[in-house]
Design a protein around this nucleic acid. Structure first.
Lengths: 167, 167
DNA sequence: CACTCCATTCAGAAACTATTGAAAAATAGG
DNA sequence: CCTATTTTTCAATAGTTTCTGAATGGAGTG
């Protein structure tokens, strides 16, 4: 494995973190764990990625909260070791669930409240526009819910997605 | 239309902006245009939302670049007026396209490079994990591409999404 | 219980992003 | 081509997030 490629992967995973709402250091650490064969300890992470011990510890804690990494014990060793969640699906829906709860849901709620209060007659155009957005967001909402329901369902959805892959 | 509800909508649309990678002011202005019956000028936006003229101007420019708002002329009036893109779908895929290009694509590229360089024998476990992620991201990539292709296709996909709505 | 080793916390520093407001540029009318 | 009005730019500032490293805590060991 070429170390340039490894670094490129770590860094671009770091940038993609924004998409999931995870900061750069967290995402880099996550990438590092993804490409580590064996569980690694915080010292190794810290020196390999040039992130201070303190920050490393905080990021690891956060990543554990997200459920995308696991802490493992190696008998005869006092240190804590970490490894990436082996179930990629589980990892992805934990990330998706977090974003949905924090950002998507409140906006959809506010939009519904607003629609409930809005008089159609008062402004036909605005009402229609908002209704359209509400419809789209609601549909996405159900879609994401299904995705999050459980592993089996998600696998179905992956198959589903695949209908759109180029023949 | 209740003004509390309007504000709640504006503010929560502002928070949801992070999801699209649009900053708070931009998203608030966008929300304001969404709920405005007639085109509004920058003065009105600025005073209604308490955003300086300068910042308002920059946000409007950005929003135009994103293609989610339009500038309109009102004859006999020197000022520029703005209105939200009336086609909600167009609006959504412009936003999605931006994020995909900026964050998703580079990460997928790096992952593929890495996989190409990785020897399966060297680390079975890592290789499998990365392959799994690559597969998922690729599928998502195609899915998003289809979504972005054109309006017709998107409408089909909306119907598709709906299969997952509760009966 | 004293020592060692590692993990965690947290206040301040650094880096980054968003916002302002004054100045400059553009536009239209006379 | 001058004036009035609106838009845009940009340097300075405010605000926010992330990161560091020293201090603190805690767990195992002799």
């Amino acid at each position: 494995m070429d170390s340039d490629e490894l670094n490129r992967f770590i860094e671009s995973w770091g940038s993609m973190g924004i998409l999931w709402g995870i900061n750069r250091s967290m995402a880099r650490i996550h990438a590092f764990l993804l490409i580590s064969e064996k569980p690694v300890d915080s010292e190794e992470i810290s020196t390999s990625l040039n992130i201070s011990r303190g920050n490393t510890s905080m990021c690891l804690k956060e990543l554990r909260n997200w459920g995308v990494i696991q802490r493992v014990n190696i008998s005869g060793d006092r240190r804590d070791f970490y490894t990436a969640e082996p179930d990629t699906w589980k990892m992805l829906y934990r990330i998706a669930l977090g974003r949905k709860t924090r950002e998507f849901d409140p906006a959809l709620h506010a939009l519904r409240h607003l629609l409930a209060e809005t008089d159609t007659a008062e402004s036909e155009k605005v009402h229609e526009r908002l209704t359209q957005i509400e419809e789209i967001l609601t549909t996405m909402d159900h879609f994401i819910d299904r995705f999050l329901e459980n592993e089996e369902k998600s696998k179905t959805i992956l198959g589903f997605f695949k209908n759109f892959a180029p023949r």
